[in-house]
Computed example of a mutant assay.
Amino acid sequence: MDVREERPDDHDAVHHLHRAAFGAHGTAVARLVDALRHDDPAALCLVGEVDGEVVGQVMFTRSLLDAPRRLVPVRVLSPLAVLPAHQGRGVGSALVRRGLELLDAHGVPAVFLEGDPGYYSRLGFRPGGGWGFRRPSLRIPEPAFQVFPLGAYEPWMTGTLVYSATFWEHDCVGLRDQEG
């Protein structure tokens, strides 16, 4: 598998990928990806390609950490998707690892996400609360709020993660009560 930066001619394949990977929520995720691209043109978007087919994609978009000393630019990993036929083969892990390497090389101090701790802990993500970070919403289950500190991280960098407005506008923060 080749991991490379996403190109504009990948967008249709990435839409298909998110619809397939996220099932009933796939269309909403594809819309979020479009909005994040528009909101953050410098986002790090990587794709995994096998035999010319895009089989995975990950986005790392800008966000802020409201630390006591100052606002700190950080990144949020969201979304990560792999075509169902390619899941369980290391595609997602390879995308995340490469993204973390590139962000570390650019001096990003930390990457945050909300996701499955069983999966992301294998990639080195840790519970955010244990590092002095606060969730941007109480709807995010505490174990799902995770961080990967990079080389530029300093111990004074604690505080509340502030998602970009795009996540709020698309109601893609935390879990909603399914009743009512």
Rank of each mutant, 00 (worst) to 15 (best):
L64G: 02
H170Q: 13
F145C: 05
L102I: 14
R98C: 11
Y163S: 01
P136G: 07
R37K: 13
R69A: 15
M1S: 15
V173C: 11
F148P: 00
V111E: 00
D12A: 15
V96I: 14
G90C: 09
R19Q: 15
E53F: 02
H106Y: 07
V76S: 05
L32G: 03
P149R: 02
D177A: 12
G88N: 05
G174M: 07
A13E: 10
V47R: 02
Q146Y: 09
V96W: 01
T61L: 08
V50C: 12
F167S: 09
T27E: 15
F148L: 09
R4D: 08
F60G: 07
F148E: 00
S164C: 10
R31G: 01
P109T: 07
Y153C: 13
E114A: 15
P109D: 02
F148S: 12
E179F: 13
H38F: 09
A85H: 14
D10Y: 03
G115C: 10
G26V: 00
T158K: 13
A24G: 13
Y153R: 12
M59W: 14
H106W: 08
H16L: 12
L36A: 06
V162N: 07
A24V: 12
R176H: 12
V173P: 09
T166S: 13
V91I: 13
E5M: 08
M157L: 12
F125M: 02
P109A: 04
G159W: 03
Y119L: 11
D12L: 13
E6L: 00
V58C: 09
L46T: 02
D66R: 14
D39W: 13
D39Q: 09
T160D: 12
P136A: 02
R4N: 09
T61H: 09
A13N: 06
M59R: 15
R97K: 14
G52K: 01
W168L: 11
G23S: 07
R98N: 12
M59D: 01
M157R: 03
R122C: 06
R122K: 15
Q57K: 06
A85V: 07
S121N: 06
F133G: 01
L100D: 03
A20T: 00
R122N: 05
A28R: 14
A94I: 04
